[in-house]
């Protein structure tokens, strides 16, 4: 299968195989109005199989959300056909208004104008906890 190179845009590489569509939906790529290519189960020497998303336009990406969904992703920014920037994502230290605290005793349950803030409590287990009540993100 041949998918053409992009001149200006973003390539999300090293997406865990099977997570591509979740990222596509979360980032709202379907409503961009430009070419978006989704490649599922591409062969990868590093990962065995991976997903890749090519976006035919340079957009502002929420790296925090992206890093939370799949911290192994590589973000390549292409300008005039050349790679101008490459970011390797990691799990974000804080998530603001990405998750919602489910603890009914948490202050965020009664004061809903508060930002929903979670901190990374354990990188290995990818555990996030609410900064207000310490409840684990579910």
């Amino acid at each position: 299968m041949v998918i053409g190179q992009i001149t200006d845009g973003i390539v999300l590489d090293h997406i865990t195989a099977g997570r591509g569509m979740e990222i596509y939906r979360t980032l709202g790529l379907g409503s961009l109005g430009c070419t978006v290519a989704m490649i599922n189960n591409a062969e990868s020497t590093k990962m065995g199989r991976k997903d890749i998303i090519k976006i035919g336009k340079i957009i502002d990406l929420d790296f925090t959300v992206l890093g939370y969904i799949d911290p192994g992703i590589t973000v390549n920014v292409i300008r005039d056909g050349k790679l101008v920037k490459r970011d390797h994502l990691t799990l974000p230290e804080r998530l603001i208004n990405v998750l919602k605290c489910k603890n009914p005793r948490c202050i965020t349950s009664s004061e809903q104008e508060l930002d929903q803030v979670f901190r990374l409590a354990d990188t290995q287990t990818r555990t996030y906890r609410c900064v207000y009540c310490d409840s684990k993100a579910k």
Partner: peptide
């Protein structure tokens, strides 16, 4: 003192 968890942080 507040009944909600995290109120003091706020």
């Amino acid at each position: 003192r507040h009944p909600k968890e995290g109120a003091a942080h706020v």
